[in-house]
Amino acid sequence: MFEFPDIFQFEIGVYVERFVKWLTDNYTVFFDIIKDGVLWFLLRIQNGLLWIPWFVVVILVFILGWKAKSFKSGLIFGLMIFLIGTFGLWEDMMLTLAVVLTSVIIALILGIPLGILIAYKRGAEAIIKPILDAMQTMPSFVYLIPAIMLFGLGTVPAVFATTIYSLPPVIRLTSLAIQRVSKEMVEAAHSYGSSPFQTLTKVELPQALPTIMAGINQTTMMAMAMVVISSMIGAKGLGRNVMIAINRIDIAMGFEAGISIVFLAIIIDRLTQGIADRFKYPE
């Protein structure tokens, strides 16, 4: 047996810790603004969700399911969300949903302009593409590390990790969608004297919208998966119930929380997909 020699040991962690400390010390204001902003936004959404009476939510899910898919789907989705309530997990579900929504919205706000930038500038693509590739190959819980380093424990780092994790598909699909807009359409826009901004907003973005909507479905599903994992760093919600159940080997609680996550994921997936389908333009 050859053991790894001690002389080669090098504690890089110490330096990283120092760097992060330097970062947070010197840019306290910056991180505080992000933290406060995200928290403010999250609380708005969270309180909004909790304010809506439960039966309104059930009916709303039913109607959306009906419109987006079919009457039967509407009934099933309504029943699913009702069941989550019967498990006593209504509030936890809403907390999870709040983190998902916040993260997805932030991911869209950041991702769509970045996607547009990549579609327009080949140079930007060369820089951002490899980063996106790396981001997508990393296991999701790796994102928790920079999150706690920068923001500590709690819901904000959970939102941060979730946002970062769900950002790549938004960027990718936006740039892809814009690059694939029919050349003749873009030329038509140019030939009528559209400014670059008019071409973007009147032709390219509307044309890219169906693909971006499909991207929102993917992003939301990724956010959903990440939220559960980010309960490890203190996010409240269904994920934390799963964590607690695992620690206590509480099968009943684990089952209820687990099945609730599945239900919620199915509902979000089908609804966003149904809505995305409505945005498609016939040839």
Binding site: M185, E187, Q207
Partner: peptide
Amino acid sequence: KIAMVFQHFGLFNH
């Protein structure tokens, strides 16, 4: 001053 009509129409289907 100038307008163009395209072979494959180049219409906006949205």
